[in-house]
């Protein structure tokens, strides 16, 4: 203690540190290194974001100048049945698909974590679908899910099930999109796997000694210890699920076939901008989505304090 105190006094009495010539040069170099990124952030993120807020208050038909209309686009959103249908569908999609996706990814990661032979091979296999264009993947799945002639239904029928009309039945179509969205879960799995491999082996063994039941360890030890990864996957998953687009567009077109069952918020936004050329309206939708997802994310972070454990955290 005494030594520590002495050091502190010495530190306080020494003259304040100034940036010498070399220090200033270093700061300038650092700034220059960061500059491309800052320019990119400004030009490609901040300016478009502010422009979107502005365009949302205009009537802008894509070509020609935007005209200020105040909150008219938001008012139009409020009474647009397509907006409400799509918001409902998207919400359902997010609420259902994200937890399912996380559970499956965690299950896969737990399996991969046990695999010692060929682990690199399996990791690659699970990551590969992520590299495939979503359009191509969706089309393949649609062909697989074709009623009667599709291999999936042929197989299900052969096993004695009466399979649904995956893409034709409005009651099944949204679930089909959820199913499609589950396919590439390599990233989530890898994130979880990283978390699992970060758990010290002896902590895991201590848990084995404390209880013989695997699920005890999973629930009380493993999951709390990878809670930062769960939070990450949850936030990213929710942000992406609210922007579900490609699968929905490939399956349902711009009208959300069948019977608007697959009409997603981003599809309505997209068709407003590029099919109806109503960019102001699309910008208003984008603004609402931005604010909504932002609030949701903040809410998750707020709750996260009570369930996410960080390694460096001493609370």
């Amino acid at each position: 203690m005494a030594i520590l105190a002495k050091e502190n006094t010495a530190g306080a009495s020494s003259p304040p540190r100034r940036l010498g010539l070399a220090g200033r040069g270093e700061a300038r170099a650092g700034f220059l290194f960061a500059l491309p990124w800052m320019v990119g952030l400004t030009v490609f993120t901040i300016i478009p974001l502010l422009l979107t807020f502005y365009i949302a208050q205009t009537k802008f038909q894509i070509v020609g100048p935007p005209k200020y209309v105040g909150l008219a686009n938001y008012a139009a959103m409020w009474i647009d049945p397509a907006m409400w249908t799509s918001a409902r569908n998207t919400m359902f999609f997010a609420v259902v698909s994200v937890p399912i996706k996380l559970v499956i990814a965690l299950g896969l990661a737990l399996l991969l974590n046990r695999v010692t032979a060929l682990s690199g091979f399996y990791r690659t296999v699970f990551y590969l679908p992520f590299l495939m264009p979503a359009v191509a993947g969706s089309i393949v799945f649609m062909l697989l899910l074709t009623p009667d002639a599709g291999p999936v239904n042929i197989a299900l029928k052969a096993l004695g099930f009466s399979p649904p009309d995956w893409l034709l039945d409005p009651k099944a179509a949204l679930w089909t999109i959820i199913l499609l969205s589950l396919w590439p879960l390599g990233v989530e799995t890898l994130v979880f796997l990283g978390g699992l491999q970060n758990i010290p082996q002896d902590v895991s063994e201590a848990a084995d000694l404390d209880s013989p039941r695997g699920w005890h360890k999973l629930v009380w030890i493993t999951i709390p210890l990878i809670s930062p990864m769960i939070l990450f996957n949850l936030v990213i998953g929710i942000i992406y699920s609210f922007q579900v687009f490609t699968q929905a567009l490939v399956v349902g077109g711009t009208t959300g076939k069948p019977a608007e069952a697959t009409l997603m918020y981003m599809v309505v936004l997209y068709r407003a901008a590029f099919r109806y050329f109503n960019v102001g309206y699309a910008a208003a939708m984008a603004t609402v989505l931005f604010v909504g997802v932002l609030l949701l994310t903040l809410l998750i972070f707020r709750t996260a304090r009570s369930w996410v454990h960080y390694e460096g955290d001493s609370r």
């Binding site: 002896d202 902590v203 084995d208 454990h309």
Partner: peptide
Amino acid sequence: PARRGVAMVFQNYALYPHMTAYDNLAYG
């Protein structure tokens, strides 16, 4: 391991980092 009636103390302590000392003791 948990059915053998043994308890182990590890070199790196292997405490559950997300639990208080009380919970570490109480967990098993």
